[in-house]
């Protein structure tokens, strides 16, 4: 049986851990609010971008000189998986669920005989994926030094990707990130970014006015599609940021609660042991006195 001193030490250490998890939870809650506003502030831009692009794309698509970013290369032999994860752990299943989704996709594609290339953003996605797909990882970007995600970060990633696409290094690009739904629910999502897809816009654009374009549609598309790529990545990074903080908050909340339970249990054992020892000492004294 553990001595009283051991028990006391253990309780003290759990208490210290609880203080840390509690602090992390509060920090995550504060950061979550900021991340959420950032994600919300970015939404109008992405929405407008998509509706305008959807409009132009529906007018142009099918044309012989439509940009490749929109129509794709016509093949799907080489897949690029863009995996967006956090730089830090201790946020529940957040990173691992994104990685799991990407890993499943990669394994499925490899089984079909396709070539897979992986582009990692964030250390926590790179490390587990490296173990299994060392050869497939072509790029790794760390956003660790930066405090918040800025549009410039997304732009740099987008430029790298469109550069690779222009060089014919892949045919289809899919992005893996976690969509923020609420503090307790983040949905790992796979979204195809090249060739560009516009969900739900085609139906809405039917009624829209016919626009005049300056310069012509194809030139606008050539200018806007790379921008759209950056916007999509930016939105995903922000959603990811909010999801990460949400996941960390609930993970730390759980940890704090577990620590509380452990403290209660250990305190009970401590008190029981203490009382048992007192009783034992009393018995020893009394029986000693009686023997006289």
């Amino acid at each position: 049986m553990a001595s009283l001193k051991d028990l006391r030490n253990r309780i003290a250490s759990v208490k210290a851990t609880q203080k840390i998890t509690k602090a992390m939870q509060m920090v995550a809650a504060a950061k979550l609010r900021r991340a959420q506003t950032a994600a919300e502030a970015a939404r109008p831009y992405a929405k407008r971008m998509e509706s305008v692009l959807g409009n132009i794309a529906s007018a142009v698509s099918g044309g012989p000189d439509a940009p490749l970013l929109l129509t794709g290369t016509g093949k799907d032999n080489v897949h690029l998986l863009l995996v967006l994860t956090a730089e830090r752990g201790l946020c529940g299943a957040f990173n691992s669920s994104i990685v799991r989704l990407a890993r499943e996709r990669a394994t499925a594609l490899l089984a079909q005989g396709k070539t897979v290339k992986i582009f990692c953003v964030g250390r926590k996605g790179y490390e587990p994926l490296r173990r299994q797909f060392e050869k497939q990882i072509v790029e790794f970007v760390e956003l660790r030094a930066n405090k918040g995600v800025t549009f410039a970060d997304a732009q740099a990633i987008a430029e790298k990707i469109s550069g690779m696409f222009q060089a014919g290094e892949f045919d289809v690009a899919t992005m893996f990130f976690s969509r923020f739904q609420s503090v307790i629910s983040q949905v790992p999502t796979a979204q195809q970014i090249i060739p560009a897809t516009f969900t739900g816009v085609a139906a809405a654009s039917g009624a829209a006015a016919t626009y005049e374009y300056e310069p012509d549609e194809n030139e606008i598309l050539a200018d806007l599609l790379p921008r759209n790529l950056a916007v999509q990545i930016f939105t995903a990074l922000l959603e990811n940021g909010a999801s990460e903080q949400g996941a960390r908050m609930s993970a730390m909340d759980n940890a704090t609660r577990n620590a509380g339970e452990m403290i209660k249990k250990q305190t009970l054992t401590y008190n029981r042991t203490r009382q048992a020892m007192i009783t034992k000492e009393l018995i020893e004294i009394i029986s000693g006195a009686e023997a006289l």
Partner: peptide
Amino acid sequence: GEFGVLAGHAPFVSV
């Protein structure tokens, strides 16, 4: 080129 937009402008997209 620069362009001014007033109320009731024709549908128009420009970079």
